[in-house]
Amino acid sequence: MNLNEAPSKTNNSFLEDVIKASNVNIQACYQCQKCSAGCPVVSAMDIMPNQVVRQIQYGRREKVLSSKTIWICASCHTCSVRCPNDIDIAKVMDTLRHISLKSGLKAGEGEIPIFHSVFLDSIKATGRIHELSLILRFKLKTRDFLKDAALGWEMFRRGKIKILPQSFTGGRDIKGIFRAYEKGRGI
């Protein structure tokens, strides 16, 4: 089976892009909606998972890439496991997030991609995630300093929050990995 076969509509480059990047046969979908029925976070989505698949088939790039749905998806894999046509929807969601980040379109859920970028910056800086630094970096971006402050204190009292990051010697490897990634993204 040639997954890269041209779709029925001409110039449907979005569908082609998604199929090529994910290697998932999106065209097998017959809209049974099993993915959406089992999705634990569907109520917070603006387009349901089965609709995402359909919108990709229709080539609606902007609607899909600027949706809340692609960021709300918690990667629980329930949809992929239950799909009768073996469409790995969780993988497609990952692909859509990747394409969305490169697209320059405004993300439908602003804070979630910011969190991911702060998380990756933390790995780049210290190799391992130091949770306190991660949370402080994220709060500096969102300016929401009070959220969960009481919980943070309770965790600190119980010895769950480390004040200082651990020493780290794998810096060269990590820098190399991030250099390759940043080059790939044209940064």
């Binding site: 970028s117 990756l120 790939g184």
Partner: peptide, 10 residues
């Protein structure tokens, strides 16, 4: 989660 949501190679 952050790496797989951002870039496949990473």
């Amino acid at each position: 989660t952050s790496a797989h949501c951002t870039d496949e190679a990473l």
